[in-house]
Design a protein around this nucleic acid. Structure first.
Lengths: 193, 193
DNA sequence: ACACGTTCTTAACATTTGTCAATCGTACTT
DNA sequence: AAGTACGATTGACAAATGTTAAGAACGTGT
């Protein structure tokens, strides 16, 4: 179960974490299973944990006038949390739930901090994660303001094709900022070529 | 000139940086003046510096088919850079230029790192900046996928009204992901109320 | 004062996207 | 196997936004 995290650390730091250090890391992470549709975070609650997805798929979304707006999707080897709520300890405006049954590793802020301070490799991993996250968000903003819905879908097909296998189309549509009907039409149009 | 930076540090760390530490910080930052329209970063170049705006206004944008897409706007006390290019040392796809004459303080990665390592207050400031930046980007993504153009404009009026004073409307429109014509119509519609 | 460039607005029209309602298919439950 | 819930599709229509073109308003520099 924790092995996936070890592989993740090694990959994104381009190093090999020692057995001793990894034992320390393991102690900070709690394994947990989520059933499909089960909430990891509900609107109004403070996000006390960050989840590392070992197996399964999750989504983060707001609900406005009964409409779900998906701001992030995650599968194996992704981290899920509402960073705003997690770091500021404020009530979240988002929900996070399991789209498939999930195995995740949970870690709280108060356990993560000492890890980062005592194990340089972990500090480096966090820096890398933050960088990647920041770059991905900037790209998403750029896509949202400069591309048509069709081009955003094509970009998703290119950069995260696996999402299309793992998430139903109404979620993909929400993630792209359009209605399921629009996505259906776009797919039809693209198929005609 | 550097005084604005000192105030910024104190504000966002809720502390008072010592004279000695601030002397060290000062040495790492180079003052520079930009004329209106002058480039701080051009597409294809690596973004070697982060700019702290002491006075003036800047924008970051891509150009696609001759259309400018503004991903970020900044005024006094904001930081400007292409974080992707800055941290990965890759050629940027963005331009950054001065919308008004600007006084800025420049700092390169190789000078910022030692500062963060030797002065804990600076490390904390950077953490805070990253958090705020990350939260702002998430909010922008959420706005882009869940709000209409009109609601995005209203949100901007509420959260950054000063932008409307400092940037021409075609830039505001681009920042919102719409055409200047659309923004003009939206403003007319809102004025009618 | 004048000419110029830039920004903003307006109008007509095209295109994209949303809304609503109906239908179809599929998977799951019992 | 029948029933049910859910997701995907389709069509007709409405609304929002983009495109193109023209002109007005404004400021700037000479």
């Amino acid at each position: 179960m924790h092995e996936a995290l070890r592989l993740y650390i090694n990959k994104y730091t381009s190093s090999e974490i020692s057995d001793a250090d990894f034992e320390t890391v393991k102690k900070a992470f709690t394994p947990k299973h989520f059933l499909k549709r089960q909430f990891f975070l509900q609107e109004g609650d403070v996000c006390k944990y960050t989840a590392f997805i070992v197996k399964g798929a999750m989504r983060q979304y707001s609900v406005i006038n009964g409409v779900e707006n998906i701001v992030s999707l995650g599968i194996e080897n992704w981290w899920m949390s509402d960073r705003e709520s997690y770091s500021m300890l404020t009530p979240s405006q988002y929900n996070i739930d399991a789209v498939e049954d999930c195995d995740v590793l949970l870690v709280g802020y108060e356990k993560m901090l000492p890890l980062a301070e005592s194990i340089p490799l972990i500090a480096r991993m966090i820096t890398m994660m933050d960088q990647r996250h920041s770059i991905a968000m900037q790209k998403r903003i750029h896509n949202a303001i400069s591309l048509t819905a069709e081009d955003r879908f094509l970009d998703l097909m290119k950069t995260n094709p696996v999402f299309l296998q793992r998430f139903p189309q109404n979620m993909i549509a929400s993630y792209l900022g359009i209605t399921p009907e629009s996505l259906s039409r776009i797919r039809k149009k693209l198929a005609a070529k």
